[in-house]
C-alpha cells in the first residue's frame, strides 16, 4: 500500500514541477495557461488519490475535492484567458491563426 502511495505522490510532484516550468518557459499568457492548468489538475488528482490510498476512510471527501477541482480549474483558466483576450493582451509572435478576433469584431458591430 505504501509503495502505491509513494509512486502516486511522486508522480503528482513531478507534474507540479512540470507545470511550474511550463509557466516559466512558455512565451505568452495563453500557452502558459495551457501548461499550468493541465499539469496541476493531474498532479492534484494523483497526490490526492495517493493520500486516499493510505487513509481509505477519507476517500469520499477526497473524491469530492477532486471533483470540485476538475470542474472548477478549467473554468477558472478559461475565464482568465477570455478576459485576457478581451483586454487585448498580445499573443506571442508564433501565433499562426486567429479566428476569435473576427467573432468579437462581429459582436461589437
Amino acid at each position: 500500500m505504501n509503495i502505491v502511495y509513494y509512486i502516486l505522490i511522486i508522480l503528482g510532484g513531478i507534474f507540479y514541477a512540470v507545470g511550474g516550468l511550463g509557466l516559466l518557459r512558455m512565451p505568452d499568457v495563453y500557452t502558459r495557461a495551457q501548461a499550468g492548468t493541465k499539469a496541476t489538475t493531474l498532479g492534484t488528482m494523483l497526490t490526492m488519490i495517493g493520500a486516499g490510498v493510505v487513509h481509505p476512510e477519507w476517500l469520499p471527501k477526497i473524491i469530492l475535492i477532486i471533483l470540485f477541482i476538475v470542474l472548477t480549474n478549467p473554468v477558472g483558466s478559461s475565464t482568465l484567458i477570455r478576459s485576457a483576450y478581451r483586454s487585448r493582451v498580445e499573443a506571442s509572435g508564433r501565433t499562426a491563426i486567429d479566428e476569435l478576433g473576427a467573432y468579437y469584431d462581429r459582436e461589437v458591430e
Binding site: I9, G13, A17
Partner: peptide, 8 residues
C-alpha cells in the same frame, strides 16, 4: 515530493 512541490 516536497522538493518537487517546492520547485513548482
Amino acid at each position: 515530493f516536497f522538493a518537487l512541490v517546492a520547485l513548482g
